[in-house]
Design a protein around this nucleic acid. Structure first.
Lengths: 190, 190
DNA sequence: CGCGACGTTGATTTGCCTCAACGATTGTGG
DNA sequence: CCACAATCGTTGAGGCAAATCAACGTCGCG
């Protein structure tokens, strides 16, 4: 049983004890060391990953051959390449552990079975996707309406601890500017 | 019965004749004139809208008091303020008809009933949300990795007819630059 | 017909990038 | 455990892409 997972699920749908057990039985536990790649370009994304402990990033190599961080995932966050899962095609992304991590994997095959046996889990995933969609849309809004400094300060205010937790150049990449520029912002006002 | 809607749904899940009828019975048909506001800030988003004919935009008034277009929806596209729906809170967005439109509304109340009576519709909406999420994530990728001219040409190539269909300043806003800049791009090469 | 909304074009400004060099910190093999 | 390399962060100088400001042309609609 994975209480972190169950607590998260139970915030959105109610499960019986049996269903809880069934859900946890479908999850595969991965224990990975820092810098391990959980997903690589060219490979199929195996399913949805739920971070129990640690911290993970998703990134892509751009046409200019630079790393572009597209997402982070902390404890109790889901992460996956939905494009690979949806279209059943090889991924273009990397997913990498930034710390030693415990991660649960719900494979696509298990997901399908789970949805049949526990339809409430499909509701849960619908809500998760809806929340993810809202989050990315807000991110687009920030990118369009704030300049780089405003965006950094807003993000740093939103996730105060997080800014210290990952290398600055990854955060800069995620926020859409250069590490140099970020360094200048931080030098300005303490 | 609304064949456009059914054709779209049937691309993702299979419905019986009864279920098709049930689905259509839950939809409310709106016929609106150009420039009509379907959603306004301060009001609750009533549900999910499916565009039968015409064209619609979603936008927000930014802190700098300018319009920022966040989304367009053409025939057979869904549109809604998912943030308002998810959190049951008043919207911050406008949704406006850019042409005379026929639009179907699935109210939140009807959606809940529909999902109970036809669980396959929850699958369908889960997949729609997943696709929407992937689409916005790709948009973020384009914003981070292409300059404004590349992004315009890419978009114009992707939806050739669409570029003519909406006012240029709305498209410029959606793509994240100024109408003046867009005009210069188009002047460059024909 | 006249007004307002939309598109174009030019001149200037600016926010951020690029390139480059230099510290600080981490980690790794001898 | 130390030495050295690699990685990461900082700082400065110069350059460029796109914004802003402003004026003018044009189209569509009441």
């Amino acid at each position: 049983m994975y209480p972190e997972l169950l607590n998260h699920v139970k915030r959105y749908v109610q499960l019986t004890a049996d269903e809880e057990e069934l859900l946890c039985s479908k999850m595969e536990l991965l224990t990975v060391k820092k810098k391990t790649l959980i997903l690589e370009p060219g490979k199929m994304c195996k399913g949805n990953y739920f971070v129990l402990s640690g911290c993970v990033r998703q990134y892509i190599i751009t046409s200019k051959l630079t790393e572009q961080v597209t997402q982070f995932a902390l404890e109790s966050w889901w992460i996956a390449d939905q494009e690979s899962l949806l279209n059943k095609q090889p991924s273009n992304y990397y997913i990498q552990a930034l710390e030693d991590c415990d991660i649960l994997l719900l494979t696509e095959a298990n997901r399908v079975i789970l949805f049949e046996q526990v339809p409430k889990m499909e509701s849960y995933f619908r809500i998760m996707m809806q929340k993810s969609f809202v989050a990315v849309q807000r991110r687009v809004g920030f990118m369009l309406n704030m300049n780089d400094e405003e965006r950094y300060r807003y993000f740093a205010g939103l996730y105060p601890g997080f800014v210290q937790r990952v290398p600055q150049y990854m955060l800069a990449s995620f926020l859409g500017f250069t590490p140099q520029f970020m360094s200048r912002i931080r030098a300005k006002k303490v």
